[in-house]
Amino acid sequence: MFEGILIKKDIERKLHNLALGKYPFECCAILLGRQGEDRIDEILPVNNASETTKRKVQFEIDPLEVYKAEGEAEKKGLEILGFFHSHPDHRASLSGMDEEYMIPGMIYIIASVDSESVPETRGYTKNYTDGSAEEIIIRRE
C-alpha cells in the first residue's frame, strides 16, 4: 500500500535551497529514486524553459532534458519518480495548470517560497483510474 513519499531532510533542504535560489522565479527539478521504494534519493535541478516573462508564475521542462536525465538515471539504477517545482509568493496548492500536466502515477512536489523562507511543501499524485489529482503524505526522515 502506498503510504506517502519519503523525503530525507538533506534532500528537502536541497529542494528548498533551489526554490530560494531561483526566487522570484519558479524553479523545477526531477525527482529520482528506486522503483517501488517510494523514497526520493536524488534530485536533478533542471532549467525552467518557460518564456522569461512567465517564469514567475509558470515552469516548463524541456522534454529532451527529461529524455537525457532518464538515460543517465538508468545507468545509476535510478528512475524518475516525479517532479518538483516552486510557487513563488503563492501557496503550495495544485493549480489547474499543474493538474492538467500531471502524468498519472508520478509524484509532484510543490513548495511555496518567498524571499526568505519556504513556508509550505506539499505532494500530489494523479489517480490512474479516474485521472483525479489527490494530495499525498510527505514523510520526512
Binding site: 519558479e26 523545477c28 518557460s50 512567465k54 508564475v57 509558470q58 515552469f59 516548463e60 521542462i61 522534454p63 527529461v66 517532479f83 517545482h85 510557487h87 513563488p88 503563492h90 501557496r91 496548492s93 495544485l94 493549480s95 489547474g96 495548470m97 499543474d98 500536466y101 502524468i103 509532484y108 510543490i110
Partner: peptide
C-alpha cells in the same frame, strides 16, 4: 512527457 505547471 511535457512537464509544466504554474501558480494557481
Amino acid at each position: 512527457p511535457a512537464i509544466a505547471g504554474g501558480v494557481s
